[in-house]
Computed example of a mutant assay.
Amino acid sequence: MYDVLRVKQGDVFCVVGIMAENKDGKPNVIILGGVGFIGRNLVHYLVENDLINKIRVVDKVMPAMAWLSNKHKESFKRVEFKHANLINPRSVTNAFSTPDGTTFDFVINCASETKMGQSEAVYHDGVYKLSCNCAEEAGRHKVRRYIEMSTTQFGSSDKKPQTEVDKAEPWSLHAKYKLAVEDQLPHIPDLNFIIVRPVIVYGPSDRTGLTPRLVAGGIYRYLGEKMKLLWTKDLKMNTVHVHDVARALWHLCYHGNSGDIYNLADQGDTTQGKIADIISDMFDISHEYIGTLASKMANLSIDEVIQDINDKHMTPWGEACQKDGISNTPITPYIREDVLMHRHQFVNGTRILKTGFTYDHPTLTKDLLKEVLDDFIAMNLYPPSLIKGT
């Protein structure tokens, strides 16, 4: 039951009133960073399946400014939104507070600085400080469970999938401070927590997982050229669909023991070759790999390589957007350095299966990637003229 006041921000309504007392036993939930890619899909999953009594989203990005799809806008009509910078401890305290003393059962932290190439100070504050602030506040409130989103950007090879008990060797500053958060959580009083480490996440609203490769596929179709890729087809790029991430986060609110760590990776053992094959089929293009030796040489001047690639991508992307009447989009043709790195993400995601969880999308498919494009095209964010047959 609800006792609400909704205030319109653009075409998204934000609940600012107080929901009535929970009479059906459903939990109250806070989703920190709930406007982001994983957060918004989690909100949609909880609302669509009527799993919660009260749902509060806390984020520094306003929903009206976040490029929400129509289905996500509908779900956010059920959300109580709080605008906050979670690096500030006072903002975190306010994020957990309620005028009537309502308590929250579960807190799921999807908030984090994720942009590549930032300074170490940015990651310290935007990853470590932010997460510790939130976890400490959750401990003070003695919530039933706190879920911390981490990463799999740890040293792995193509020989053996990384498990939760293997030594974690971060290969990015983001991962360095995520690991520091993991190390700190056991020392926070009264905190019942679980850590979740997803691999490359894709699905509707993804901008940084597999979407950069979808953009490249369209560009090379436009250019009528073969797509050339660094390294080889065997580069491990394990994946997990965002729907399964949302389901897993909710599942772990009720299952597992405090302190557990769970990798999230589907059972398809995705490689660069599998992704390239799907994209080539989608866009009716061909591709080839320049191989390990040439890739190592390119890596010596990676900044120049990235600049050349981005210069090549910008013109056709701009022309296609202009042709299809797209004047503003968060999708970018610019390739980040991490997309070109020789970093295997070979991860064993089966531990969570022992808790009774199953993956609805056990392997990456063409239809699932097409769903990502269709969603962006429906929002007028991706030029449809880049798709095969249009």
Rank of each mutant, 00 (worst) to 15 (best):
M1Y: 08
D3S: 15
V7K: 14
V12H: 10
C14S: 13
V15M: 09
G17M: 11
K23P: 00
D24A: 12
N28T: 03
G33R: 10
G33D: 07
V35A: 07
L46N: 07
I52R: 02
I52A: 12
R56I: 07
V57H: 05
K60P: 00
W67T: 04
W67L: 02
W67G: 01
S69H: 12
S75Y: 03
K77R: 10
R78Q: 15
V79I: 14
V79L: 02
F81N: 04
K82M: 10
H83R: 14
N85H: 09
L86T: 09
L86G: 07
I87K: 15
P89E: 09
T98W: 04
D100I: 01
D100E: 08
T103W: 13
D105S: 09
D105A: 05
M116I: 01
S119C: 04
V122H: 14
Y123C: 12
G126H: 04
V127A: 11
Y128M: 08
L130N: 09
S131C: 15
S131Q: 14
A135H: 09
E137Q: 15
A138C: 08
K142W: 14
R145N: 07
R145H: 15
I147P: 04
M149Q: 10
S150T: 02
T152N: 11
Q153C: 14
S156Y: 00
D158N: 14
P161E: 04
P161Q: 05
V165Q: 13
K167L: 00
A168Y: 02
P170G: 08
H174Q: 13
K176C: 13
K178V: 10
K178P: 03
D183R: 14
L185M: 11
P189R: 10
D190G: 08
N192R: 13
F193G: 05
I194C: 13
V199T: 15
G203M: 06
S205N: 15
R207N: 05
L214T: 08
A216C: 05
A216K: 10
Y220D: 01
R221Q: 09
K236H: 10
M237F: 10
H241W: 08
H243N: 09
V245D: 00
R247I: 07
L252C: 01
Y254Q: 04
H255V: 00
H255Y: 14
N257K: 15
D260T: 10
D260G: 12
D269P: 00
Q272T: 06
Q272K: 08
G273S: 06
G273F: 03
G273P: 01
I278V: 05
G291S: 09
T292D: 11
S295R: 01
A298R: 12
A298C: 14
E304A: 15
Q307N: 08
D308A: 15
K312C: 10
M314T: 02
P316S: 12
G318T: 06
C321V: 02
K323F: 13
G325L: 09
T332F: 03
R336H: 13
E337G: 02
V339S: 12
L340F: 11
H342M: 06
H344V: 00
F346M: 05
N348C: 14
N348Y: 12
T350E: 14
R351I: 00
T355D: 12
G356P: 04
F357D: 13
D360H: 08
H361C: 01
P362D: 03
T365L: 04
K366P: 06
V372M: 12
F376I: 00
I377Q: 05
Y382E: 02
P384G: 06
